[in-house]
Structures are given as structure tokens and as C-alpha cells.
């Protein structure tokens, strides 16, 4: 992968690989500024506020640029309030950007052209589009009519979705009687019946148990392969991102902090590696080799600067009677946490 990244002084210079296709999603200097009115508590403040409203401008998305190639699955990471959902809404035409350019499949989303809407979908984990009182199957039929899906195509897609998501037993039940996970599967199916070429997923696995999360992940991979759809998803579960996305976008305070391969994110933001070593003498002194993070069950965990990893490993093997030794990157959650705790640029 020839995508290299440099992040200097908080600015992002992403040298994207040369793509021959036009990007499915093209975002340039995208900005969204929300105006919120402010006032202090109390009646006097309320009166003052009547005379002169004080407003504050809050940049939710502040100059974000990236491209998504057709067929890519990209993870969109960031803490709450970082601007992920705002960006997804601008990409799907629900929010009008304050500045910058967006093109999705060559359309300007905020114009909400029918041809554009027919080719995209947005799944919001905590919001429901299914009709609550009737079986999901009936809502699917309604979507078939709304999107004008030919019956034969509809049947084929539905069969696929039913098989992949194991929806069979759920279809005849009123949606309100389904569990959260079951409902989410139906929501995703409903959102994909028209076989959108671009899929935006906002927390598709939120609140679901591990089995269900895994199922939805497998399904998304499969959908991406079958339809060649471009998928941009946000998730709080790093397992989602690790399983699905080679590339991630990291957004924080409305700015893009990182755009590149997940593996490089770890390299970029961690100065340390972890060495787990098991010795014949469990009491041996390890402090000269690095910071001892933990010692339990005869295994010791050392934290060493990334550039010293090879040298420390060599010294450990030469100096001590080593039973077992592994070198690891810190867990991705830890990396992400570190990224987000960096001071605002």
C-alpha cells in the first residue's frame, strides 16, 4: 500500500495512492459550524437575552479532506462530539455544510437528488426507520415501493439478506417485539434492500452482544464483496474497526488527525512496544531492560521505546534464560485513547 502519511503540527498531509477510478466519496476542506445560543442561568439573564441574544459558533467539523475509493471499507474514529456523525450527515445530505466541498458518486449530497438518494444509505444505530407496529417484512415491502425496486431484484436481495443475517424467524414478528440486536439486523437489512453503492453506518453495533456484533461484521464484509459498495462506518468497538477496515480516519475536535492504514496508526501514535517475557528464574531483575509494567504467573511485561525494541530483545535473550518471549504493539484501544488525549491542535 503506497499510502503514506505525515502528520506535522496537527496538519494532515495525506499522499494518497494514485487511483484510477474517480473516488466514490470526495471531501475537501469540509466545515460545519453550528450556532448555539448561550445564556447564563436566572431571570435577569433571560431578560438580557431577550434584548440581545448571545450566540457562539461551534465548529463541529473544521476543514476535513479525504477520498474514499469505490469498494473501500473505512473506519471513522473519534470520541463523542468529534464530528463523526456530523460528517456522515453531510455526506448523506441531511446537513448542509458551512464550507468546503462534498461529492458522493458525483452528486452534491445537500441537493438530495433522487438519483443520489437511490444509491446511498445511512444507518444510525440509535434511530429506527422500521414501522414499529408491523412485521419487518411489511416495512421491507414498503421500502421496495419507495425505492422502486423491481420485484425479482427485491426477492433476490431479500433472500441474501435473510440468509446472511439469519432473519428468517424475525420477519413475521411485529418490530416492537424484537430484541435490540434483532431489530438492528432488520434495520440494516431495510437500509440495504436497494443495494446502495455507498453505505454510511453510524454505530451499527452499538448495544449489541459480541455474537451479534461478529455477525454484523461478517455480513458487512460480505455485502461489501458482493455489491462492491463503499462503506464508511463509525464504531466505539475497536473490534469492528480491526475486523472490517484496513484504513481508518481519525477525527478529533472536528479535525482529521490521521488518515491511513490501521497498522500505521499504531506506529504513528505509540512510541513504545510491549515485550512479554517468561524466564526460568521468575525473580530475575528486569529493571535494566525497560519499565516493568507487570509481573504475574512467571511472565513479566516490559515497556520499551519502539526504536530500542530489537536491541532490548537481543540483550534479554543473551543475558537471561528465556523460556518464552513475545513483542507486541499495545492494544489498539490504548492507542486510540492516546490519540484523543493529545492536546488540541
Amino acid at each position: 500500500m503506497a499510502r503514506s502519511l505525515q502528520i506535522e503540527n496537527g496538519s494532515v498531509n495525506a499522499y494518497h495512492r494514485i487511483v484510477h477510478e474517480t473516488p466514490a466519496v470526495r471531501v475537501r476542506e469540509l466545515r460545519k459550524i453550528f450556532t448555539v445560543s448561550e445564556r447564563e442561568a436566572g431571570a435577569a439573564a433571560a431578560l438580557r437575552d431577550l434584548l440581545r441574544r448571545r450566540v457562539r459558533e461551534v465548529p463541529a467539523v473544521d476543514g476535513v479532506s479525504f477520498d474514499l475509493s469505490p469498494g473501500e471499507i473505512v473506519g471513522f474514529l473519534g470520541p463523542n462530539g468529534a464530528g463523526k456523525t456530523t460528517t456522515l450527515k453531510m455526506l448523506s445530505g441531511l446537513l448542509h455544510p458551512t464550507g468546503g466541498e462534498v461529492a458522493v458518486l458525483g452528486h452534491v449530497p445537500s441537493r438530495r437528488e433522487k438519483d443520489f438518494l437511490r444509491q446511498i444509505t445511512l444507518v444510525m444505530g440509535q434511530r429506527a426507520q422500521l414501522v414499529w407496529d408491523i412485521p419487518a417484512a411489511d416495512s421491507f415491502e414498503l421500502n421496495r415501493a419507495i425505492y422502486g425496486i423491481p420485484r425479482a431484484d427485491f426477492r433476490r436481495t431479500l433472500e441474501e439478506l435473510v440468509a446472511l443475517l439469519d432473519l428468517g424467524p424475525l420477519l413475521p414478528k411485529p418490530v416492537r417485539t424484537l430484541s435490540l440486536g434483532e431489530r438492528m439486523k432488520c434495520e440494516i437489512a431495510a437500509a440495504l434492500l436497494h443495494r446502495p453503492r455507498v453505505v454510511f453506518l453510524d454505530e451499527p453495533t452499538i448495544g449489541l452482544d459480541v455474537t451479534m456484533q461478529r455477525r454484523i461484521r461478517a455480513f458487512l464484509t460480505d455485502y461489501n464483496r458482493r455489491v462492491g459498495a463503499t462503506i464508511l462506518l463509525t464504531s466505539h468497538y475497536m473490534a469492528d474497526v480491526e475486523a472490517l477496515c484496513r484504513r481508518v480516519l481519525v477525527i478529533h475536535h472536528g479535525k482529521l488527525l490521521f488518515d491511513g492504514e490501521l497498522a500505521r496508526l499504531v506506529q504513528r501514535f505509540t512510541a513504545h512496544k510491549t515485550i512479554v517475557v517468561r524466564l526460568e528464574d521468575p525473580e530475575a531483575d528486569l529493571s535494566p531492560y525497560g519499565e516493568v509494567v507487570s509481573r504475574e504467573d512467571g511472565a513479566a511485561t516490559l515497556r520499551v521505546p519502539r526504536e530500542l525494541t530489537a536491541r532490548v530483545t537481543g540483550r534479554l535473550l543473551a543475558d537471561l534464560a528465556v523460556v518464552d518471549l513475545t513483542v507486541e504493539d499495545p492494544p489498539i484501544e490504548e492507542v486510540i485513547e492516546r490519540v484523543f488525549s493529545e492536546p488540541r491542535a
Binding site: D133, S139, E141, A145
Partner: peptide, 23 residues
């Protein structure tokens, strides 16, 4: 616009189903 009559037919079925849920 081609699909509008189909939409009305389907919406009719949906409304019927919803109403019958709440007799």
C-alpha cells in the same frame, strides 16, 4: 415517478396492517 402508484398500494397495505394492530 414510475413507482408512485406502487408506493400508494404498498402504503395502503402498511396502514391497514398498522390499524388492524390497534383495533
Amino acid at each position: 415517478m414510475r413507482s408512485l402508484p406502487a408506493l400508494y398500494v404498498q402504503q395502503f397495505k402498511t396502514s391497514l396492517a398498522v390499524m388492524l394492530q390497534y383495533r
